[in-house]
Structures are given as C-alpha cells and as structure tokens.
Simulated assay, not measured.
Amino acid sequence: MHFAAVAYVGESTLDPLKYYHNITSNTLVVLEAMAAHGVKTFIYSSTCATYGEAEKMPITEVTPQFPINLYGKAKKMAEDIILDFHKNSDMAIMILRYFNVIGSDPEGRLGEAPRPEL
C-alpha cells in the first residue's frame, strides 16, 4: 500500500519539485522495489484533485481527469505510471481517489485541524 505523500495544493505551487519528487518519483521507486521483490498487489492512495473542475456531477470513475493544480497533476502522473506499469505486469493494482474522507470542522471536533494554505 502506498499512502504516503505531501498534500497541500498551495505548497505544491510554491515547491513543485518537492511534490513531483515525493508523489511521482517515489511512486516509481515503490513500484520498482515491489516488482524486484515479487510483490503482486499494489494499492495507491490518490485524490479527487486529479479530476480538476468536473463539467458535471456526480464525479464517477469515468469522469475525465484534468487536474488544475500541481498537486493534482503529480498524483495524475503517478496514476498514469501505475496504469502503464500494470499493462505488462501481473501485479494487481487498485487506485483510490479520496474526496475528504475524514472531513473536518473549523472547531476541530471532527477530522484534522484545518490549517491555512500557504
């Protein structure tokens, strides 16, 4: 399971190399290590940010992905890498796209304590 990544849209714009390295490059490293050691199942934690501004709701798995920020682009690139790798591999893959699964409220009673974007 690959659930680790940096995840702030504003920060991704200020430090794009950090995001491309952490999200996209590290996905390559994880896939290479898994393939080298015969791991046959891969679950990837992605984001709804890969959809960008969807033209219609609800968003489904067939909604076109057009990310509008660097964070979404880096996650989409990682998804593309995983899907391309899967074409010539017997590794089972699953890509999960989250829509604020935990949720939160400004008072901190639910989910993470919100922090302002950079």
Rank of each mutant, 00 (worst) to 15 (best):
A92W: 08
T27Y: 01
M91V: 15
V62E: 15
T50N: 03
Y19T: 07
S89P: 02
N100L: 12
M1E: 11
I93A: 02
M1F: 09
I59W: 00
A5H: 01
F42I: 04
S46P: 00
E107G: 07
E53K: 15
S89A: 06
M91E: 05
Y20C: 09
I43A: 10
L31E: 01
D84H: 11
S12N: 01
S46V: 04
V101F: 14
V39H: 05
Y71W: 02
D90H: 07
Y51T: 02
K40C: 09
P114A: 07
S46N: 03
N26I: 12
Y98V: 00
G52N: 03
E55Q: 13
T47N: 03
P58K: 02
K40M: 09
V39Q: 10
Y71D: 01
P116Y: 06
S104R: 14
A78L: 03
A35C: 06
E107F: 10
V6H: 08
A74S: 08
K40L: 08
K40R: 12
T24E: 12
Y71F: 10
P64Y: 08
E79W: 06
A33Q: 13
S104T: 15
M77D: 15
Y51V: 01
V6T: 11
T13E: 14
A113C: 13
E112W: 14
N100K: 08
T13C: 11
G111D: 00
I93P: 00
N88C: 04
M34T: 06
T24A: 06
C48W: 04
P106G: 06
T47G: 01
G72Q: 00
R109N: 15
E32D: 15
G108P: 01
Y8G: 14
H37V: 07
D105G: 05
E53C: 10
Q65C: 13
V101A: 11
S46R: 05
S45A: 09
N88R: 09
S12D: 00
I82S: 00
A74N: 00
K73V: 13
G52K: 01
G72V: 04
I59Y: 02
F3E: 12
A92Q: 14
T24F: 10
T41Y: 11
T41V: 14
P16S: 08
M34N: 05
G10V: 08
N26E: 15
A49T: 08
A35V: 08
G111F: 03
K76Y: 14
N100I: 09
T24N: 09
F66C: 12
A7H: 11
M91Y: 03
T47L: 04
R109I: 08
A33G: 13
T60V: 03
A4D: 05
N88E: 12
A92T: 13
E11R: 10
A5M: 05
L118V: 14
P58I: 11
